[in-house]
């Protein structure tokens, strides 16, 4: 992979975080908004493989950790590293992902990522159940919708390139 491509991903990473801090708030309903960071990690893992997936997953997770309570440092890093790696493995080993599969992987990844995060932070069962119902599930669906639009546009761009 060329250095230029890494630079492009770095810029994309910054843009994604900027979107997460601004647009995600504007798009949120009843405190439920899309997670652009997870879309980014899944997209990178699908495109660039598990190594890049877990690297960018770690970077994104660490960035979120830095601004989270210090007691939970590492929780995002671990969960997103796992996410990036797992999605990259899926793409590389088992599947040639089409649009519905990508959206499905995104949803599953979101769910797994949150579960690992809850596990790592050691939150209580009741709290996790509540968070799962009020945050994870609706935000997962919302992120799948936004991610689906993104993957659809990305596919359209690819088709044009091939043509």
């Amino acid at each position: 992979m060329s250095n230029l491509k890494w630079l492009k991903v770095l810029i994309l990473f910054i843009i994604v975080f900027a979107l997460q801090m601004t647009v995600a708030d504007w798009l949120s309903f009843f405190d439920v908004g899309p997670d652009f960071v997870i879309i980014f990690i899944v997209a990178i893992a699908i495109k660039m493989g598990p190594a890049a997936g877990c690297f960018w997953g770690f970077v994104a997770g660490f960035t979120q950790d830095v601004y989270a309570p210090v007691e939970w440092l590492g929780a995002h890093s671990i969960s997103m590293t796992v996410l990036g790696f797992a999605v990259g493995q899926l793409e590389e080993r088992f599947l040639t992902l089409n649009l519905p599969a990508k959206v499905g992987v995104l949803g599953l990844g979101f769910f797994v990522c949150d579960m690992i995060y809850f596990l790592v932070t050691g939150l209580g069962k009741d709290v996790v159940t509540n968070l799962f119902l009020t945050k994870t599930l609706p935000e997962c669906l919302y992120t799948m919708l936004i991610g689906g639009i993104f993957f659809y546009l990305d596919l359209g761009k690819k088709k044009k390139k091939h043509a």
Partner: peptide
């Protein structure tokens, strides 16, 4: 298939958790 990277970052994350 990125296992080295995965293990590295995972260990890094776990070290941060345990620090």
């Amino acid at each position: 298939h990125g296992i080295v990277a995965f293990v590295f970052f995972l260990v890094l994350g776990l070290l941060m958790r345990q620090a």
